Amino acid sequence: TETREFDNEEEARKEAERLRRKGQDVQIRKKGNRWELRRT
């Protein structure tokens, strides 16, 4: 599992969408005042 953190939700969602188009399974969750993007 690979995780990346983003400062805002929009960036996290854009990156998640990009990875999903490549066929990756991605989850986003709020972590304090940041957003965590998890690739499984």
Rank of each mutant, 00 (worst) to 15 (best):
T1Y: 15
T1V: 12
T1F: 14
T1G: 12
E2Y: 12
E2S: 11
E2G: 11
E2N: 10
T3E: 07
T3K: 09
T3G: 09
T3W: 15
T3R: 10
R4H: 10
R4W: 15
E5P: 03
E5G: 06
E5R: 07
E5K: 06
F6D: 01
F6R: 01
F6I: 01
F6T: 01
F6Y: 10
F6K: 01
D7P: 06
D7H: 06
D7K: 06
N8Q: 04
N8R: 05
N8M: 04
E9Y: 15
E9W: 15
E9I: 13
E9P: 05
E10D: 11
E10A: 11
E11S: 07
A12V: 04
A12G: 02
A12R: 00
A12H: 00
R13I: 13
R13H: 10
R13S: 08
K14T: 10
K14W: 09
K14S: 10
K14Q: 12
E15D: 03
E15T: 05
E15L: 04
E15N: 03
E15A: 08
A16K: 04
A16I: 03
E17L: 07
E17R: 09
R18F: 07
R18C: 13
L19W: 07
L19S: 04
R20D: 02
R20T: 06
R21W: 06
R21Q: 12
R21F: 06
R21C: 14
R21D: 11
K22Q: 14
K22L: 15
G23Q: 02
G23V: 01
G23Y: 03
Q24Y: 15
Q24I: 15
Q24G: 06
Q24M: 14
D25S: 12
V26P: 03
V26S: 05
V26E: 00
Q27H: 11
Q27P: 00
R29Y: 10
R29K: 11
R29F: 11
K30T: 04
K31M: 07
K31R: 10
K31I: 14
K31G: 02
K31D: 04
G32E: 06
G32C: 03
G32P: 00
G32D: 08
G32I: 00
N33R: 02
N33A: 04
N33F: 03
N33T: 04
N33Y: 02
R34L: 06
R34F: 09
R34G: 09
R34H: 14
R34I: 10
W35E: 06
W35Y: 03
W35A: 02
W35G: 07
E36S: 00
E36K: 00
E36D: 00
E36P: 03
E36T: 01
L37W: 01
L37H: 03
R38M: 14
R38H: 15
R39W: 15
